[in-house]
Design a binder for these strands. Sequence first.
DNA 1: TGTTACTTGTGAACACTTTCGCATAGTTGG
DNA 2: CCAACTATGCGAAAGTGTTCACAAGTAACA
Lengths: 206, 206
Amino acid sequence: MTDRLTLGVAARLSTYLRVLTQYRKQGSESISSQEISEYANVNPTQVRRDLSAFGKFGKRGVGYDVKSLTSQIQGILHTGGTHTIALVGAGHLGSAIATSSIFKEHGFRIAAAFDIDEDKVGTAVGDLTVEHADGISARCRELGVVLGVIAVPPESAQMAAEALVDGGLSILFNYTETLLDVPEDVTVHTINPAEEMLYALYFYLT
Amino acid sequence: MTDRLTLGVAARLSTYLRVLTQYRKQGSESISSQEISEYANVNPTQVRRDLSAFGKFGKRGVGYDVKSLTSQIQGILHTGGTHTIALVGAGHLGSAIATSSIFKEHGFRIAAAFDIDEDKVGTAVGDLTVEHADGISARCRELGVVLGVIAVPPESAQMAAEALVDGGLSILFNYTETLLDVPEDVTVHTINPAEEMLYALYFYLT
DNA sequence: TGTTACTTGTGAACACTTTCGCATAGTTGG
DNA sequence: CCAACTATGCGAAAGTGTTCACAAGTAACA
Ligand SMILES: NC(=O)c1ccc[n+]([C@@H]2O[C@H](COP(=O)([O-])OP(=O)(O)OC[C@H]3O[C@@H](n4cnc5c(N)ncnc54)[C@H](O)[C@@H]3O)[C@@H](O)[C@H]2O)c1
Ligand SMILES: NC(=O)c1ccc[n+]([C@@H]2O[C@H](COP(=O)([O-])OP(=O)(O)OC[C@H]3O[C@@H](n4cnc5c(N)ncnc54)[C@H](O)[C@@H]3O)[C@@H](O)[C@H]2O)c1
């Protein structure tokens, strides 16, 4: 149990957590492996196996209690608390991210938003006041940011990445198509829907 | 070879395609499995094995020719042409999507954008003129749309999904947190960065 | 031409994932 | 209280994925 989860299990548990978080908002108290599997696009047996590896969380004939299963998975992933993130780029995408409830729901607090455009610095996006990109590194250290989101034009992405790395971050989420060159200990997660679209299309076409 | 790819292989090939597409724009003609693996977050041996299953695309001592490898993978995934997509919701996120080059680069053409807000209908986002959401189903059929993107507020997502399904689509990309209920033959892909953030954090914290 | 440095392609071993089938346990309604 | 139904948990087997180690090709340069 002190072992590190394999990549696949950790990915699926994160997906279940997303489904559960939303399912709970929609009112229901109990959920079956069948229902989880439909929203998560996995096999129901897989869901049960993933969960039963850590204990007997379900009730036969009933399903899983949404609230307690949520805590259990948060426990397994050690991600129950609040985590502080920083946003670079306050354009269309940046505003959408800053005002979205998606992050808050899962315990992520956007602590600062940065832009290079003097007209945007000082204005509000969501609950935040946009700060100048010059301050990225210093402010990230100050605020204890663990994760940076890059939502700038593609040609500025490398620059943004370097500023965030300078601020001590080692997890970057890159919404641009730019391939980022970062130190070895930094992980870049790329949000590129086109990639998933190609994948989706393959299974549609065959 | 007429067999369907496994989920994992198809996903990785899509990732390689994303990396190659961008790498090519940055000028280089040749790429090694090592380089692909760094940008794709996989093991270099895995890259070589995935590719060598379909033929000998590389040159020992040199690497892979970026251009020809791109075509080869497009051939394997059958996704070389242009595919037509529709966008529902022309707010902050919708505008960002409509103006992003990410989709075009991979052969996706956004053929129409819809919104319910009368003030937005008729205005331009990117190259498109926003159309009224009432026309979603009819226009999707007319335009031969294969894939729909949902970028509306969470409470409107189910409605948007139903309109798209009515228009004959069976692949939906959902940027909202809402769990969508759709017919069995429709696949929903959810873009929820928070899910991937939880996953990223797990490996960071352990 | 010979040497050095590089990088692919693949056999073999091992680890992990996925699925089936079914015993087991809880629930509901008569 | 019993019968019908539902849904979990898990043994076992088959299928995939992942990594190591190395032979074999290619290029560049002295
Ligand atoms: N992955 C996705 O799902 C997705 C969706 C839409 C857009 N995108 C991509 O997101 C990026 C941004 O799109 P957008 O529509 O928000 O663009 P935008 O032009 O509206 O906003 C970009 C903002 O970044 C700021 N900026 C520029 N350089 C900066 C720097 N060095 N530091 C800080 N801020 C800087 C600009 O001032 C601007 O405010 C694009 O690359 C686009 O392709 C990705
Ligand atoms: N997954 C991600 O990466 C990500 C990032 C940012 C935002 N989001 C989510 O995207 C959604 C949209 O965010 P936004 O900032 O663009 O919001 P927004 O309010 O700026 O835009 C929403 C638009 O949808 C339109 N709309 C409402 N109902 C509609 C309907 N039934 N049909 C057509 N159009 C309709 C509205 O008129 C508005 O123009 C939110 O749910 C947000 O949480 C997701």
